[in-house]
Design a protein around this nucleic acid. Structure first.
Lengths: 330, 330
DNA sequence: TATTAGTATGTAAGCGCTTACATCGCAAGG
DNA sequence: CCTTGCGATGTAAGCGCTTACATACTAATA
């Protein structure tokens, strides 16, 4: 920076100003400085800037995984919006491990991110403590609660899942099973399952624990969950799934077992991954606004960082997407 | 840090040493310091550390997109390995736009990443210039070349694609089409296409430009590409695709048109996404070692940063995966 | 006992910026 | 003509660490 200052015949303060608040510098000097910057290929030091200004223009995110199109899409939208506003994204993966998440948060905090994005509201006590002590502005995407500890940009997983059950009941289904995600440490998966159970009760239907199973996140887990639920004496006529990947696993297993969907069995997913509409029959599912959430949370963070405007929780719609895998009970 | 030093009755230098090179501090002091650190909830400032030590323990990556399971998987593996070694990942998306990529690289360089990961070897001149001037260790994943400007951890796209063509020719196919990715600015897509064309020539088959089409990356692009190629007078009996998503698009369109795969048409993909083995028939494709590449490049970077060991280019296998969408020509 | 080598610790000089404050020049108003 | 005020610029003090160097101490050796 000194080189630039010398070459342009100004002080380093002017160089700094010309680069950061161009309006506060006369046109002539500004031009001189920027031309020297280009000429000498000067790249400012983010570390020095961060140290001096206490801002890194960096935002951290901890996601459970990137191997899930829904998170990947959300993160991509998040990054795009941050990038447009001059911020860079530090991404970290927790692998659904709360303890590991704490480590990742600590690391991001050490990097002095200007803000933090977490997925959901289920976090280790230490995670909450860290976030609170640091004072780092933090949002929870996918989260949804009455009075959340931090702003949530998400949707109501429980009622979205409940709507799907309403639909099945309307179609005459009485024995409804669920291949859910692992709900331990995962408020989204838990809410979806709870929504299903509540809807069942509301309709006066029994909640048969034997019809519910929880599985991790892969096609084969969906297949295995389906197998477990169907290999009972009295199998369900419809299956609600914790997400689309599990639902596709169910579909694949049903296909291999010669069970016709939707003629003999109805299936509903959750997420609305792009591929689900291409399947035949196309998957009935629930649309998760992943891109909208990513964009909105980035915008909220950017605005907050720019002028301190508060980050408000936002609830998005997660509409039911009626397609071909549901039909009246035979 | 001064607070810690005072509380532990030592100098800040000892605190720093206790934290960074525990071995150089006596057990007693080390314990005292770490206990005070915990007690006071001290989190070191990454910016100050970076400024003083000229290391950020941060690695930058520019990927074309995260909405592609193959990149997402690679990045996840990359992040996991970096994380294990104390590094944090700065992720940035170029959207396949070379100019935007330059901006992203510049931003990462300003953040003073210790190393940089790029996808492929097709980059804007300014990108190369930036990387070179900065002296930042940089690797190209997915890349493959005789004497690359920077270390490549990738595989030979051209010969992998060629093998697939060999297989089709063995099965008696003579009219072979291709729904390729956009090759402009994308060395991987270009290499796959070139590999196909060369293999065709090698087998004495004509390269009919009308049988080749390039499309972006979505199921519907695959469908459209397929439609274009099939709506000719003399449609191909087999179609090679630039990636699995395009291949699935082809499969979906074929299904909707009542074209039986593989009885009437053979299809080959590229990537081996998890879902391709679940389809019925399962997709014949080429396995891209995305996780291995992510892990290996992170390891190479970490080693280089630790002791200066050179980063060697590595060529991975991209084996042909024979499944159900290919069959002898009718 | 004197010397040496080695280890543990402290001192303090930066790292490359930002920014509060001081200074300067100039136009407008009295 | 002298003030006053304001915008443009310069000066220099940190920001919170790391680390070269100096120092103090210990133990081994002659």
């Amino acid at each position: 920076m000194e080189d630039i200052a010398r070459a342009a015949g100004v002080s380093t303060a002017t160089v700094s100003r010309a680069l950061n608040k161009p309006d506060s510098v006369s046109g002539e000097l500004r031009r001189k400085v920027t031309s020297k910057v280009r000429e000498l290929g000067y790249v400012p030091s983010g570390a020095a800037r961060a140290l001096a200004s206490n801002r890194t223009f960096t935002v951290g995110a901890v996601v459970p995984t990137l191997n899930n199109a829904i998170f990947a899409a959300s993160i991509e939208a998040f990054e795009e919006t941050l990038s447009k506003n001059g911020y860079t994204l530090l991404v970290t993966v927790s692998n659904y491990d709360p303890t590991h998440e704490v480590e990742q948060i600590r690391r991001l905090l050490e990097r002095e991110v200007d803000a933090l994005m977490l997925v959901g509201l289920d976090h280790h006590d230490d995670a909450w403590r860290l976030v609170e002590r640091s004072g780092c502005p933090t949002v929870a995407i996918w989260g949804h609660a009455k009075n959340p500890a931090i702003p949530c940009l998400g949707f109501d997983n429980a009622s979205a899942a409940a709507h799907a059950i309403d639909h099945l009941v309307e179609l005459g289904h009485r024995r409804i099973g669920m291949v859910a995600g692992i709900s331990d440490g995962n408020d989204r998966a838990r809410a979806r399952r709870r929504g299903v159970e509540r809807a069942l009760k509301r309709h006066g239907l029994p909640v048969d624990a034997g019809l519910f199973t929880e599985r991790p996140y892969s096609h084969n887990d969906g297949r295995a969950g389906f197998a477990e639920v169907m290999d009972r004496n009295d199998p369900p006529t419809a299956i609600m799934c914790g997400n689309d990947v599990l639902a596709m696993g169910v579909l694949f297993e049903a296909r291999d077992r010669g069970i016709a969907v939707p003629a003999e069995l109805s299936v509903i997913g959750f997420d609305n991954l792009p591929i689900t509409e291409q399947l035949s029959p196309a998957l009935t599912t629930i649309q998760v606004p992943s891109v909208a959430i990513g964009t909105a949370s980035a915008n909220a963070i950017v605005a907050h960082l720019a002028d301190g405007s508060p980050i408000h929780s936002q609830t998005f719609d997660a509409p039911f997407v009626l397609r071909g895998t549901t039909r009246a009970v035979p």
